[in-house]
Every structure is written in C-alpha cells, then in structure tokens.
Design a protein around this nucleic acid. Structure first.
Lengths: 218, 218
DNA sequence: TTGCGTTTACGTGAAATACGTAAAAAGCAT
DNA sequence: ATGCTTTTTACGTATTTCACGTAAACGCAA
C-alpha cells in the first residue's frame, strides 16, 4: 500500500511544524507539500499531487472555506480536512457546506488525526463527537431561527416592512409619508397594522423589534 | 553560557510539538518541560526549574492570564512569554497587566521566537510591531470610550437616566409618571432635556441611545 | 366570481412631543 | 450661612402621533 499524500495549508509555522512532527514517521502517511496560504494552491497541487489537504480556516488572503470550495470544484478527488482552532458552529457548518470531509480541533490527539486522515482518504467523513453534537445543536437552532424569520416575512408585507424600517431609522410619520409619496394617515395605518400583527404595544417595541430582526442597525 | 531553560504550557499537542521542533537544536535553548494546562504548574516548575515559560492564553481550567498572574507572584524570576492565536487588545492588555514579559502571535517566525525568548530571559520585554501598534490603538480607543461614558454619566442626571431607562423599556409617559409618583409633564420635561443634552431628534433615537449605552437590553 | 390580503386613506378623541417658561429642592463651594 | 448651580418638578400651547374604527381600490387565487 502506498503512502497517503498529505499537504498542509496553515499560516502558522508552529502548527505546520507540529503536524509534520506528529506525522513524521508514520508509515502510511507522507507530507508532500505545505503552504502558508492558498495563493499558490494550483501550483502546489500540480507539483505534489496530494490526496488529502489539511487546512486551517483563518488564512491570509482567501479563507480556508473559499479555498476548500475551490479545491472541491477543481480537484474533486482531493479530500480537504479542516484543522481549526475555532469550534463555533458557523465555521464548522460553512466548512461542511464548502465540501470539507472532516473538521478537527487543533488540540486533536495524534491517533485521532491519523484516523481522520485515513477516513477521509477512504472517502468517509470524519467529525469528532464534539463537532457532531455541535452540528446537531446548530441545526436545531437554525431551524428555529428560520421559523422566526419566516414568521416576520410572512406576517409583514413589503410595504409594512418598508415603513417599519424608515420609522426605526428615526424618520417621523410625515417624513415617511413624504418619502414614499403617500398620506401620513396611511403611514399611521401601516404602523397600527404592524403593531397589531406583531402584538406590540408601543413605538418603543417597534424600534426594538426592528433592531432584533435586523431590519435596521443600531 | 548555559542554555536557557524553557517550559511550554499549551493544550494543543500540535503547537507544543511545533515549538519543540522549532527550538529543537537551538544551541542556547533547552525545553525542560511541557504541560497541557496549569494544574500542575508548581510541580512542573519545581521539577524542571524553567527560566522562561511559553504559555497559551486559552487553556483548559485556569486561563493563561490567571496562570501568568500566579507565576509572577510565586516565582518572580520566571519570565512568562504569551504565545497566542488571539491578537485582540483585550487579551494582550490583560496579559501585560498580568505581568507577561512578551506577547507573540502563533505565526511567529523562528528568529522572532528566539529573539523573544532571549529578550525576556535577559529581563527585557518583547512585543512585536503589530502588538505595539495594537496597544497604542487600544489605548487611544479606551481613552475615547471612557470619555464617552463620562459624557453620559456627566450629562444625564440620575433622574433623567431613570426616566430614559423606563421609557426605553417600553413604558408610556403616564406609566413612568405613576411609577415615579411625579406628573406626566415632568416626565415629558425630563425627556425633552435628555434629548437636548444628547442632541437627539426623536424617541426612536432615545431608544437606540439607551440600547447603545446598555441602559436597557434588547 | 367570490374571498382574502395588501395598500391606500380618513375621522375622532386621547396621548405624546416640541419648545418655552419657571419655581421649588438639593448640592456644593466659599 | 450664603449664594450659585444643577436637578427635579411643573405648566401652556401648538403640533404630531396613537388607538380604533371604517372603507375603497387592487391583485391574486380558489
């Protein structure tokens, strides 16, 4: 069995050295190249023909996510394994969306790193327990958020949203009326409707609602 | 000249290995011990008598900052050099406050790491350019923020703050008047004064101001 | 076509705001 | 203690906004 060809992309020399020393005399693995960032990724791939790329997320220039996306498109046989400090859902989910085959924290043990490399090399996916749990949590959260967002867009009409936005930006009813070329009474009506729909009691709530739902910024 | 005795405290094996491989055959430096966290720091120090400790900030259990503080108190001759992914002001400033003699990003070059170790060993402090600049920026920023905060507390009286809070929480003027046992006109006056003082145009601005300055929560 | 939601708009009385004025009450300095 | 400043209190008036009800015009879908 030939060795698995592994490339490393990480801007921290210490991390690169650490990985190299970890995998140094592993019989099944060979480090064929390394890079600080993704600028020369094509060159690197063509020269060293890696089968697995260990990649950090935060890189100078293009992020690991973008890079992963690119590699997935151009070299579909190469497996990308993300090795990141950051264990937050956003990064992990983005990595998965971008086609990463695995995601490991940087404090991974040597056997886990080896397992992961072998797994992705064999076409499997590798996420450790923490990450699996996190994905699950995040999924549930997302669903909930989506539901909320849907509620808003379902409940409020375009016009109502527009008026809410202008109001929460600080315009008076008259200003809103003028800028939308409608009567001030209409603006008032819209606001009433919005309050009814969202079960809000005051303009203060209206402003807070707009901020919460990122219709306007603070 | 004897070798500088260096200890490593970092929960990422890869990082520890990376540092070791970087410093491996440096004539002036010797890695005398390493640890994943600060639980056994006393033991470690007593056994290996390090002169410089390379330390991560984010550690399981006690943070690098706390640990640094502790080491400074108990072993004042030991120099702590923080080696962190995180380049944000807060961490850096805290590290300095805790008595760290240097702060390096993890993507430090080998010569810089060597320089830093030698510098702190010789009783100097070592911060690279980025960090020096960051400290400066942060300092300026802090000053500004303090000024702003002062402005608020200077400008608004207790009563005004109280009324702003209740209003931003969603109470009507009448409710505020009732709960403070004052006339509704008084509440109105206060609000006017607040707006004048802060140069705000509408209640919307009032609410936003209260949110910005954390007088109320969203 | 009928029905439903959206957008438009008005009427009326109550509430809030803008802007000015001003007087007790409290705090502070000399 | 006395005077000065700030805070807190309050009102008047004109304007604006709110709450609540009503309703016409429009589009779209069953």
């Amino acid at each position: 069995m030939s060795k698995i060809k592994v490339a490393i992309v990480d801007d921290h020399q210490i991390v690169r050295d650490g990985i190299k020393s970890l995998l140094h005399n592993e019989p099944g693995i060979e480090i064929v190249s390394e890079a600080k960032c993704g600028d020369t990724i094509d060159e690197m791939i063509n020269e060293s023909q890696p089968e697995v790329i260990l990649m950090d997320i935060s890189l100078p220039g293009k992020s690991g996510i973008e890079l992963c996306n690119y590699v997935m498109k151009e070299y579909e046989n190469i497996k990308v394994l993300i090795l990141s400090m950051y264990m937050n859902e956003e990064f992990i989910l983005n990595a998965i969306k971008a086609g990463a085959k695995g995601y490991l924290p940087k404090n991974t043990s040597k056997p886990e790193l080896l397992d992961a490399i072998k797994a992705v090399y064999n076409g499997e996916e590798y996420y450790n327990e923490n990450i699996s749990q996190m994905i699950l949590k995040s999924y549930v959260k997302n669903i909930k958020q989506e539901q909320e967002s849907q509620e808003i867009t379902e409940t409020l009409s375009k016009r109502e949203l527009e008026i809410l936005k202008l109001f929460a930006e600080g315009q008076t009813n008259q200003e809103i009326a003028d800028s939308l070329f409608i009567s001030i009474r209409t603006v008032e009506s819209h606001k009433s409707h919005i309050m009814q729909k969202l079960n809000l009691k005051s303009s203060v709530d209206l402003v807070k609602y707009a901020l919460k739902n990122k219709i306007v910024e603070l």
